[in-house]
Computed example of a mutant assay.
Amino acid sequence: MDATERIKAASNFLLQSPPGEINDVLNDIRNIISDDDLLQEGIQPVLRRYNIEQFTVVDVPETNHQSIISEAARVGSSSGEEERFLDPRSKISFVFDHLSLEASDPQPFEADAEQESFRAALETAALNYLKAHFIDGVAAVFSSKEGANRYVIQVVANKYNPTNYWSGRWRSEYVVDLTANEVVGKILINVHYYEQGNVQLNANHAVSFNIPPAIASSVANTASSKIFALIEDEEGKYQVSLNETYQEMGEKTFKGLRRALPLTRQKLDWDKVMGYRLGAELSGNRGPFPTT
């Protein structure tokens, strides 16, 4: 297998990197390939895919906040245009380096005037939602590329605690369709615990609900707040179901996997067992002393 094939095979591991640990995986691949120039060229498409799928956050130039790298944020790149990403909050587009995770070349972006009023109202509600439920989270609200009266809400929250051997990421995405009066979305959770082991949780939960006519017909700020109240209800129910699953796993699933104690109800001292076995073998080989 040549170096290019090794990069293609090894870089696929990047897509499975747990939250906050992609640099560790990248360093391991780097040691295997031993060619930084070839590696950087070969893994760029995989890093781009990872950052977009994982809602990687970036410091937005000329602002004091972060935004989300995602498919909804992607602008340009059609007909040979340079790929850029949008921060709808500041109305700035920028180039994103998928290796260094830095934004550059900020430029003003002209928003769709017809959709901006409701998008901005949803954004305000999203930021209030962050304060209540995701202290370190990042949210972004985009006008959908798929038509008028459609908006994409994205939320991501990361927790990295390598000292205690765990990391986690919450991602949620909702498409608000004011024409169909419905919200369709998903919640993605990835948790990694790796102290003396390697346990991962990857959860994907679909969400859909209708927007009551009374909400849909209200003013933008009121409608946005009530839509987030419905989102809060859906996410709260899912959180409760996760807690119930954890409790059942602790009380039933993991107990069933534990090694049963012997009849003495005490753990075996394997060092002593080896000593008993050695003594038995010596006893079995004992015979009369040779005579001369």
Rank of each mutant, 00 (worst) to 15 (best):
F118N: 05
F96D: 01
E114F: 04
E53R: 11
D87K: 06
E62N: 14
I68M: 06
Y50D: 03
A72C: 13
N51L: 02
H98G: 00
A121E: 02
G42D: 02
D87R: 07
P61S: 04
I32V: 10
R30Y: 05
D28T: 10
F96H: 01
S93A: 13
P106Q: 05
I32Y: 03
Q115A: 12
Q44I: 10
R84W: 11
E71C: 07
F85T: 04
A113W: 00
G76Q: 13
E83V: 13
F94W: 08
P108D: 07
E83N: 09
S34H: 12
S104V: 08
E82V: 15
F109V: 03
S77D: 14
V58K: 02
D105F: 05
I68G: 05
S34Q: 15
S104C: 05
D35I: 10
R48G: 01
Q115G: 10
Y50E: 04
D97L: 09
L99R: 14
R119F: 06
T63F: 10
P88W: 11
N31S: 13
V57T: 14
G80E: 12
K91L: 14
S104L: 08
R119M: 09
V95I: 15
F85E: 05
P106V: 07
E110Y: 06
N51T: 09
E81Q: 12
P61H: 03
E83W: 09
S77M: 13
L47T: 00
A113E: 09
E81P: 00
Q107C: 04
I69N: 04
E53H: 07
G76S: 12
S70M: 02
S90M: 08
E83A: 14
N64D: 15
S100T: 15
D97I: 11
A103Q: 06
K91V: 05
P45Q: 03
N64A: 13
L86H: 03
S93T: 13
R119Q: 12
I92F: 08
N64Y: 04
H98R: 01
A111F: 01
P61K: 03
E110F: 06
E114P: 00
N27H: 10
E116P: 00
D87H: 06
D35V: 09
N51G: 06
R49C: 02
R89D: 09
D112R: 10
N31R: 14
G42S: 04
R84T: 13
A72I: 12
Q40T: 15
P106I: 08
R89L: 14
E110G: 09
S100Q: 09
F96Y: 15
I29E: 04
K91H: 12
E116C: 07
I52N: 06
F118D: 03
A72R: 06
A120Y: 05
T56V: 08
R84F: 12
F85Y: 15
A72T: 13
G76Y: 12
